[in-house]
Design a protein around this nucleic acid. Structure first.
Lengths: 143, 143
DNA sequence: TCTTGACTTAAAGTGCACTCGAAGGTGTTT
DNA sequence: AAACACCTTCGAGTGCACTTTAAGTCAAGA
């Protein structure tokens, strides 16, 4: 009694992973994902494929580009010998994303100050004469 | 004895703000920045303009699009009555960027786990049989 | 039987933000 | 005089990641 694994055709799978069928075929063309085919040539996917797409989306989510993803997939196909390379790719993606966050936070800080400055102007706790640039200097004292 | 303000022509200004002269003219076309002109029609910029471009770059840095930037500039031109609207725009930009950071961090966490998993495979502290998916479950116990 | 959803290839379109080039002109510097 | 940096309009090109269309085929389900 072999329990057959649940199969999803492209439409259902697309909904599950939150991509369009177009995109799924596009990713397949690009070699990012592989699909299985039934006797009529119709694509189907399994739970494993859901997890793989999920992981791809995590990588994409950190800003990794399709080309790098392709490369990662190729390396994976080459077996365990490429683990150090893949690890390095992930580390780089991680470092890059962390740098992005740091930059984002820096911009965010200025935005926050500008919002505070607007508030100060509106409730008159900041002098009309004080420009945002002057106001910002207040936070630069320690630099 | 009026100290005249330091003027920068587009080439020098471009270097100062880290944009190309092309981009600067493009931004001007889009209404994001204004330039002053000398008697020959040659653009020049001042310190104030450096600060303004800097601020624009902070907004862009949080992911704000040209169209929204345009709108912000328009509102600014309409005077203090639009401060609440502008404040709201900044708040939204801030909220959006914070959401982006949160998402990024989520992706980052998975990446981190995958890196650890690779390390575990390499030094055999993780069983060969344990898939990354299984491994990830370890961190899901509290959910 | 008809609709629905799948299949194919190949090409074109979309959106965003630049980025560049052509072609001809002006003014300053070497 | 030549080089250089600037000016104009405006249209085309770039890069990325999709997104859509065309045109025709196939098979299962109501």
């Amino acid at each position: 009694m072999v329990e057959s694994v649940r199969h999803y055709r492209i439409g259902e799978f697309a909904q599950l992973v939150g991509l369009s069928t177009y995109t799924l075929r596009y990713y397949e063309d690009q070699g990012l994902i592989k699909s299985h085919r039934d006797e009529n040539g119709v694509r189907y996917y399994t739970e494993r494929d859901i997890r793989w797409v999920g992981f791809i989306l995590h990588l994409k989510g950190t800003g990794m580009r399709i080309n790098d993803l392709k490369r990662y997939v190729q390396l994976r196909a080459e077996g365990d010998a490429t683990i150090p390379t893949r690890r390095a790719m992930l580390q780089k993606a991680k470092d890059d994303a962390e740098a992005d966050i740091a930059e984002l936070q820096m911009h965010l800080q200025v935005l926050g100050h500008k919002i505070d400055w607007y508030d100060g102007k509106v409730d008159h706790t900041i002098a009309d004469s004080e420009s945002f640039h002057d106001y910002l200097q207040r936070f630069n004292d320690d630099k």
